[in-house]
């Protein structure tokens, strides 16, 4: 399910079945072109993976709008805000919350978080319609969903 009126209506009717939330963590940085384009590309690829995950597990996983932040941030204070998000969501709603990101800094600060962090290693994909890309996306989705299902 997504953060959309129709999905949320269904969510409130079937809350007991939708117990898992996925939040993408998306860093922004406009200092250099190469960094900015790299981050934008990672954002696209993360979104594609999460769209596919959501499509396969619509009935149990809610996909949150992305948590977006400045990359050179102080991760201590950023994680405090992120915790406010997750506590708002977990409060009587979601039993399992997963944070998904390409940003390795979260991995370093994992102890500050109270949800499950899934850190994906980066890759560059030129053409998302290619067979190679599709295979890669499917593999990522498979691995992530296996991990998530181990919590169910």
């Amino acid at each position: 399910m997504r953060w959309k009126k129709k999905d949320l209506e269904l969510f409130f009717q079937s809350k007991e079945y939708v117990d898992t939330l996925c939040i993408p963590l998306v860093p922004l940085d406009l200092q250099t072109e190469s960094e900015a384009t790299k981050l934008a590309d990672q954002n696209t690829s993360l979104q594609i993976i999460l769209d596919e995950l959501e499509r396969n597990y619509t009935g149990r996983i809610m996909l949150s709008p992305a948590y977006t932040y400045i990359r050179s941030t102080d991760y201590e204070s950023e994680s405090a805000i992120l915790k406010q998000w997750t506590s708002m969501f977990s409060n009587n709603h979601f039993k399992h919350i997963f944070l998904l990101t390409y940003d390795v800094n979260w991995k370093k600060h994992e102890r500050l978080l109270d949800s499950n962090l899934i850190w994906l290693t980066a890759t560059t994909i030129e053409d998302y319609q290619s067979d190679h890309a599709k295979k890669w996306v499917n593999e990522q989705v498979l691995q992530i969903s296996e991990l998530i299902r181990s919590y169910w």
Binding site: L10, S14, Y17, V18, R55, N56, Y57, T58, G59, R60, S145, R149
Partner: peptide, 27 residues
Amino acid sequence: PTCKHLGCAVSWASNPDYPEEFFCPCH
């Protein structure tokens, strides 16, 4: 593949207990 319960994707024979059925991993 869309499950008629809440819409997850079902798979053929994905649950070893039910090798001749489509199975929905969600519920």
